[in-house]
């Protein structure tokens, strides 16, 4: 290993990039699908890439192109997509205690997706304060560029790619549940947390497979939180 490589290996942003690599398995196949669907809905390659660059929120992007293609009123398209993204309001406050007063955090909030939040929520508390900005920048940049790159790939060659390598879209996305599992398991520190986390996960899964994918995350999380409050004074559950 060269001295430059050794030096880079110790930098926080590179650690952030390394920690975010499992996200690629989920991001790139979904981004390719989005690129393909956006082109099929009548958007150009450039427009498709700009949607991923600036909206940068998976579910709402799919809704945006689908509603726009169906001729829905644009004010309704805007409201519906923002409603789907309303779950993001919980993310910034949860990370705020771990972020310093550096103004660069303000533009970096663009990168605060579901997955980056989950990753940062687990990793930032473990890092020294001076390394957090670099770590987050590396992780968020890798995720953002992979989303944009995957979208471009899908817009330009999505049809051929998914025909030739169907496993890209079938196997790699399992990286996301695997990553979320690794991020959430350490939170199961008592019977109370384990039970409420399990309820949230199972509720979300049921909502997703019964046809409510957009409501699944907020509704399931609220169910888990309600159960947490209902049970938190039960001492046998191990919460103090």
């Amino acid at each position: 290993m060269s001295s430059l490589t050794r030096q880079l290996a110790g930098t926080p942003w590179l650690q952030g990039v390394k920690d975010a690599i499992p996200l690629l398995g989920g991001y790139i196949p979904v981004a390719i699908s989005f690129g393909l669907i956006s082109i099929q809905s009548g958007f150009s390659v450039l427009e498709t890439i700009l949607i991923s660059t600036f909206i940068y929120a998976g579910a709402s992007q799919f809704l945006f192109v689908a509603m726009a293609a169906s001729g829905a009123p644009l004010w309704l398209v805007v409201i519906m997509t923002l409603l789907i993204n309303a779950r993001h309001i919980v993310y910034g406050p949860n990370l705020a205690p771990y972020l310093n007063d550096d103004k660069r955090w303000i533009p970096l909030m663009h990168g605060l997706t579901d997955q980056i939040f989950a990753l940062a929520h687990a990793r930032l508390p473990l890092l020294p304060e001076k390394e957090r900005l670099g770590w987050y920048t590396g992780a968020a940049a890798l995720a953002w560029f992979s989303w944009i790159g995957g979208t471009a790939l899908g817009a330009i060659a999505g049809g051929e790619l998914t025909q030739r390598w169907p496993l890209i879209s079938e196997v790699l996305p399992f990286a996301l549940p695997a990553l979320f599992l690794v991020l959430i398991v350490p939170r199961c520190t008592s019977l109370l947390w384990s039970a409420t986390i399990a309820l949230s996960a199972v509720t979300a899964l049921i909502l997703k497979i019964t046809g409510y994918p957009n409501m699944a995350i907020p509704l399931a999380a609220i169910s888990g939180a309600v159960l947490f409050y209902a049970l938190k004074n039960q001492h046998f559950l191990g919460e103090h």
Binding site: P93, D114, S169, F180, T196, S200, A204, K208, A225
Partner: peptide
Amino acid sequence: GINAMPSWITILGPMMIAAMFGTSLAPA
């Protein structure tokens, strides 16, 4: 500072991650 946060936010954060885990488990 975490002590100054409303407790519902600190509880909802992990629940959101658990819910993301649940939704991502659903096979294609």
